[in-house]
Design a protein around this nucleic acid. Structure first.
Length: 785
DNA sequence: GATCCTCGAGTTCA
DNA sequence: CTCGAGGATC
């Protein structure tokens, strides 16, 4: 008797799932790939003939074919935590000691496993069926990538065995095995497909494909390493037993997982895995230790967003050797000429590196790197490549030490160095195209005017083709200008313009949309704040925080524009150098013209307000005289002068001997008189006096800004927050009166530590500073909203 | 004048 | 993230 179609379908499915399980979970392939494909085709044909028998968990149903518009957000029922990091044996010892102290148990068992360099995900099973999968996202909310995850054969669509909870969330890592990654790229190179940068990015990029059919072609794999929500059932009360159970239910679990005891066990494991690292079929960046028993885990609990019972022990930053082809230089926004190394491509920590900064001429001299040297490259903080040193034995004969060029490679102006400074600068200022370009990029950047879509590449073209000479020109641009620019860029590069490859009106329309969007983004940026505007101007020494202070103290661009530089020193943290730099900028007619142009072309500063009340308190003649930095006129002398003369005008009119009668010793009096003889100084004093009077005229309607619960407190934010960005949190804290600083010192009153907080948190602990986790911060903000 | 904090500026790759 | 240097403080 022939079996019914339903029975044959069930049989094929069982065979296929079994083959999957043996291949991915047990790592013991049971049937050849060709046989697997044959069974799958047979099943597909049967199901096509009997559509009523198709179920969601059938092996044929892994690849959906309805590309979704975008990913939905998924809120994790239990947040996906991150782990604390250890980089040294000492830190591992500390970790173990903390647990031993708290649990009062000498012998501790740990579950240890390799830390895969992939993408963390969460899989949700209801009644044994895979229903949803999400990326980690920020830990609290991820993206729904269910359709893509279904295409990964290592992820079971239905749980095997019995006894699983009604709801089970499994956490693990999606990764791309090295060999498959190589094979995939080889194929892609031959057939003109997309070549992936490295396995990690390959895995991340594949999961974020909107079309699951593309994901299905990527060689992705999966390892489970933990669980999230569990309802209607129970898991074993130790990590190692849980992993074993997950394996039984059909999840691949790393066979390198092990249970070890005490610090020695952990360090031994670290060593073993470190030695095996290069031979492993996948990339890892360390190992993870977890306290094995559930009771101990619960007792240890969590610190901010990481468990106190687990830690990631990272391998040291990878170093590689390569050959330095040449030392080139870059010209920055301020004219700073920085050397960088152009090297033969080398793989370091997962990416191919060809360039690395050399910081400045002193650094090059310290390292004595020369063209043709074999150098050692490291990725500092696992991101930015740096040259750590040279291999002297490999130096070719006849090399000479590198020297800073004498002329700017872009504009030909002389490159000069200020006495005692480390940086060399191109003296071309705004005549140098490189400086102009960089200043426009800065102006458009997110933290300044935030012109969306106006990135480096664009500004480069706009600037090279002379569509934009300065920041004000951005607000003259039209859609037609942009299209014309694009046309000329295409012509220059010999690329075929998109509009010509397709015929008809439609293609033309598609090709103008970007220009319209960009013009719109430029338009949106017209509405801005004083802080952003000042920062955007790119004045030397005026960064974000100085711009913010200036905005708060003076409140009005027009006021700032006409103040002489000594008055800027009234603002806390602004001294002579910064004040002079700002004054110098405002003294340039070209800069004032550019500001006028910006305002004339519709830039609106929305938050103009009267000067801060704190400013008034510091406005007196004596302070002004000190701020003018007159030789031999100290605080004491300035006060004598201020009490003897009613006004600046009186000072200007007075003969020298009047300074003496005011009580000044003759050398001070003479120095002051000599200083005044310089017309520029006399004018500066006169202008400053007028500005002082001007400010004192202001009605005292503006008192020091309202007080908040954090008035006078210095707060430092570190690590990532789930509910908001660090910037947002900073703004909220500032609104409550706090000063938000960037680094921890003994002046810090409070540190807010988010997830994966690093050295700053450690320093805060060391200094005994109050530390909040995100929950405490949120509660506080809530209370004082 | 020395010392300690902070801020500014530049940086890589996808 | 890192270096250098400006500002505040003693």
């Amino acid at each position: 008797m022939t079996p019914t179609p339903a029975a044959r379908i069930a049989d094929l499915r069982r065979q296929l799932e079994d083959a999957n399980y043996r291949y991915h979970v047990l790592d013991e392939p049971s049937i050849p790939d060709a046989e697997y494909d044959r069974l799958l085709r047979a099943l597909d044909e049967l199901e096509a003939a009997h559509p009523e028998l198709v179920t969601a968990d059938s092996p044929t149903q892994r690849v959906g074919n309805a590309p979704a518009g975008k990913f939905a957000e998924v809120r994790h029922a239990i947040p996906m935590l991150s782990l604390g990091n250890a980089f040294s044996d000492e830190e591992v010892q500390d970790f173990v000691r903390r647990i031993a102290d708290k649990l009062k148990r000498p012998a501790l068992r740990f579950s240890a496993e390799p830390k895969l360099d992939g993408l963390a995900i969460s899989l949700r099973y209801e009644n044994g069926a895979f229903v949803q999968g999400a990326t980690r996202g920020d830990g609290a909310t991820g993206e729904d990538v269910t359709l893509n995850l279904r295409t990964i054969k290592a992820i079971p669509l239905a749980l095997r065995g019995t006894g699983w909870p009604a709801v089970l969330e499994v956490r693990g890592e999606v990764y791309m095995p090295r060999a498959d990654f190589e094979k995939y790229n080889e194929h892609a190179r031959k057939h003109g497909g997309k070549v992936l940068a490295n396995p990690r990015n390959g895995a991340a990029g594949s999961l974020r494909q909107l079309d699951p059919r593309i994901t299905a072609q990527r060689p992705l794999a999966f390892f489970a390493y933990g669980t999230g929500l569990v309802e209607g059932g129970e898991l074993p009360d130790s990590h190692s037993a849980t992993l074993k159970q997950l394996r039984g239910w059909g999840f691949p679990v790393s066979s390198l997982s092990d249970v070890v005891e005490g610090v020695d066990g952990l360090l031994g494991y670290y060593q073993r895995i470190g030695e095996a690292r290069d031979g492993l079929p996948f990339d890892i960046d360390g190992v993870v230790y977890k306290l094995d028993d559930g009771e101990g885990q619960r007792e240890m609990g969590f610190v901010s967003r990481a468990p106190r019972w687990a830690i990631a022990h990272k391998f040291p930053a990878q170093e590689q050797m390569t050959v330095l082809e040449s030392i080139e230089v870059n010209v920055g926004r301020t004219g700073a000429v920085t050397p960088w190394a152009l090297m033969q491509p080398v793989h370091v920590g997962g990416v191919t590196v060809t360039r690395a900064t050399l910081h400045n001429a002193d650094q090059v001299a310290r390292l004595d790197v020369r063209n043709g040297d074999t150098v050692i490259v490291r990725r500092a903080g696992d991101v930015i490549p740096e040259v750590v040193g040279v291999v002297p034995e490999r130096r070719p004969a006849g090399t000479v030490p590198w020297q800073m060029p004498t002329q700017c490679p872009v504009c030909g102006s002389e490159i000069v160095r200020e006495e005692g400074e480390a940086v060399w600068r191109c003296s071309g200022e705004l005549t140098c195209p490189a400086q102009r370009k960089e200043s426009i990029i800065h102006f458009a950047s997110r933290r300044a005017m935030d012109i969306e879509g106006l990135g480096e590449r664009f500004v480069e073209d706009l600037s090279d083709l002379d569509f934009v000479q300065n920041v004000a020109d951005l607000y003259k641009l039209t859609v037609d200008d942009l299209l014309e620019m694009k046309r000329r860029v295409d012509e220059r590069d010999g690329t075929t313009p998109l509009a010509l490859t397709k015929s008809g009106v439609k293609a033309g329309k598609v090709a103008t949309k970007w220009a319209e969007n960009l013009i719109e983004a430029i338009d949106r940026s017209r509405q801005t704040t004083l802080e952003r505007f000042l920062f955007g101007l790119g004045i030397q020494h005026v960064g974000e925080s100085t711009a913010k202070a200036l905005a708060q103290w003076f409140g009005d661009l027009q006021l700032i524009r006409r103040l002489p530089w000594p008055l800027f020193k009234r603002v806390p943290d602004i001294g002579g150098e910064v004040a002079r730099s700002l004054g110098h900028f405002l003294d340039q007619p070209g800069n004032q013209q550019a500001i006028d142009d910006l305002l004339a072309r519709g830039v609106v500063i929305g938050d103009t307000h009267p000067p801060s009340g704190k400013l008034r308190a510091t406005l007196d003649l004596a302070t002004l005289l000190v701020d003018l930095e007159i030789p031999k006129v100290t605080r004491v002398r300035a006060e004598q002068l201020a009490s003897a003369f009613p006004s600046v005008q009186a000072l200007l009119d007075a003969p020298v001997h009047n300074f003496v009668t005011a009580g000044l010793p003759s050398d001070s009096a003479n120095a002051f008189a000599a200083w005044l003889e310089d017309e520029a100084n006399a004018q500066l004093l006169s202008r400053s006096g007028a500005a002082l009077d001007d400010l004192l005229q202001l009605t005292p309607e503006e008192i020091a800004s309202a007080t908040g619960p954090l008035d006078g407190k210095t707060v430092v934010l570190t690590g990532g927050l789930a509910a908001m960005s660090r910037d947002e949190a900073g703004e909220k804290l500032e609104a409550l009166g706090a000063k938000v600083a960037g680094s921890v010192s003994k002046k810090t009153h409070l540190v807010v530590a988010g997830e994966a907080a690093g050295s700053k948190l450690a320093k805060a602990q060391e200094l005994g500073i109050e530390i909040w986790d995100e929950a405490q911060l949120l509660a506080f903000l809530e209370k004082h909203a």
